[in-house]
Design a binder for these strands. Structure first.
Lengths: 158, 158
DNA sequence: TTAAATGCAAAGAATTTGCATAACA
DNA sequence: TGTTATGCAAATTCTTTGCATTTAA
């Protein structure tokens, strides 16, 4: 479950045909599994594990194998069309590449909030100047506790 | 490999007997596997995967099983003596609980730099005020590229 | 027609669990 | 002595790989 916590001037929403045309231009063949994968990623509008994508795709084409999905996600990631992030202890989450953003994942309810990259700016800046380290703030989520769960916990302990 | 990038007033270094006494006081039995695990964690002074700990421990007591190490790490974590962090795609890293710190892990060379928690302060503050989200900055590393690797890459592309 | 992509089965890492046995307190 | 912890084997979860077959271009 992903809550989009930020309104920003959104890029033109990717379309299935647009993404596929892009793939064709990169010399990648357009196959049924790929078409369905792109479709699921667009419709998801959020993060999906390989397994979740498989379920959606297999509803339309039962033969598409999980390994094909993994292979295609890797391929699309190599091409810069897709990214994955680690939002917690379990499986990786995949989503179409868009405007850079970070992730806050609640340990308690599992929800992930997307936040604008600029929240990470001070951290990124200091890591660079003090440690020479260039942070990629997208790949691993910051984990913690969301407001609702914190509130619920506070009530419980009263 | 962990580079300690920060000098700070360090807490009293934990000793094997100290940690074990603490465990005893918590009603936990002191066994050979536990003693060796605590010893390895202290001597490591750094992050170790369960596997690495197993190798060190099995050099002294070959029968200690990896599952015992996982169970004990879980147990010690529940007691607050140990913490784990995800520094990249592979296995989790375990270390004794100490002063809170964050992790910067280089995707290129795999080295991890420990940085003081205060670097995360602005991010933590804004996540709290703008999204009601309480970040735990220790559990997942920020990944990126360290200065040395960035430098090496820059040279290569010249 | 032919290189690229697929489905399937099987392997692989990391971690967890069930259970009979061993050992701390 | 009575739990608690252990060793072992087997199961689980997530992901990758080898290979014969199919398919897009």
């Amino acid at each position: 479950v992903v809550v989009h916590a930020t309104r920003r001037s959104k890029p033109v929403a990717p379309t299935e045909e647009g993404v596929l045309a892009n793939l064709r231009s990169l010399g990648v063949r357009v196959t049924t599994p790929r078409r369905l994968l792109v479709r699921s990623l667009i419709e998801a509008g959020a993060h999906r594990t390989a397994d979740e994508l498989a379920l959606e795709i297999q509803a339309l084409a039962p033969d598409v194998h999980l390994s094909t999905i993994y292979r295609n996600l890797d391929e699309l990631e190599r091409l810069g069309v897709v990214e994955h992030a680690h939002l917690g202890h379990g499986a990786a989450s995949y989503h179409l590449s868009e405007v850079a953003h970070g992730h806050l994942t609640c340990e308690s309810c599992g929800k992930t909030v997307e936040v604008p990259e600029e929240l990470f700016a001070p951290l990124v800046r200091r890591a660079k100047s003090e440690y020479g380290f260039t942070i990629d703030p997208h790949h691993f989520a910051m984990v913690g506790v969301c407001g609702r769960c914190a509130h619920r916990r506070a009530e419980k302990s009263e």
